[in-house]
Simulated scan of single mutants.
Amino acid sequence: MTEVRSVVDRDDLLSRRIREHWTGLLGRRLDVLIAGCGRPDPLDLSQTQARVVGIDEDHPALRACTSARADLSSWALGDLRSVPVPPRAFDVVYVPFLLERIEHPELVLDRLLTGLRPGGLLLVRMRDRASAYATCERLMPAKLRRALWHRFAPPGAVGPLPAVYEQVASREGMHSFCLTRGLMVTEDVLAVSGPALRGPLGKLARAACSVVETLSRGRRPASHDEITMVIRKPQSHFARLI
């Protein structure tokens, strides 16, 4: 079932699921992989014992943010289709706002799933390709996006980053991916968090999204731009595991 929640509720949801998973490990250290660590988007692990490893693309803005993070035990930047991911090494894989900005996201997800232990959690946050916000972002020429970024983005926002938006960067695309990999989507939450909506010209950005929604006759909604999913890798050895 899809829900619409505030950003605060969504972050609390992820924290609760992580704490519950750690409790089930009976005191063992929680091993966490953040794929997309180049954004200042740390998980709340304050009530757990955890080791956090980060990976992301090698982009100047992402490198600067990653090197400044204090919550990572180690990190690596490069082509995510070839960055080493040890098999079954992580209890939680967190993917914040990565899928919409890379090519071949299915290949990257498959690599990440090899590193997730059976019964582990895959936590995904992404900009919804089908939303009005993402439609504006992916149809805007790259040069224009770069020129307007600092006018629209709030202070501290990392970017502008590529806006690729392949089909998996959507609710239907992720549900289809999970179905073919034997993964179970346990929660599916919608939210509004686009940088341009929170920046100094947020009213103008919201107006543009409303226009897109109207012109698309509701097929590109302005009511949300983010999807958060809690996904579980099955324990069963007979399920199709990556």
Rank of each mutant, 00 (worst) to 15 (best):
R51A: 14
L107E: 15
L45T: 01
A207R: 07
S67N: 14
C65I: 11
L45E: 04
I102Q: 08
Y133V: 02
R5F: 03
R138Y: 13
L161S: 08
E213N: 05
E3H: 12
F238Q: 00
R151D: 04
L107G: 13
V95M: 02
R39S: 09
P60N: 02
P154H: 10
G38Q: 06
D79T: 02
L139K: 10
R17S: 05
E100H: 07
L113H: 04
R220N: 15
A76C: 14
V192P: 03
V52F: 14
P141K: 05
R181L: 14
D56R: 00
R28S: 15
L72P: 13
A142T: 09
R63A: 15
V32N: 10
G115E: 03
S210I: 03
V230P: 01
A147M: 13
E100W: 09
R127G: 03
A142R: 12
T23D: 03
C37D: 01
T48A: 15
S74G: 01
D12W: 12
Q167L: 15
Q47W: 09
R146E: 08
F152T: 07
R5C: 06
A142L: 04
T186R: 01
L123Y: 10
A196V: 06
V53A: 01
T228D: 13
H237P: 11
R206I: 03
M1T: 14
S46G: 12
E103N: 12
F177Y: 12
D56A: 08
S170T: 14
V124G: 11
R151S: 10
D58S: 07
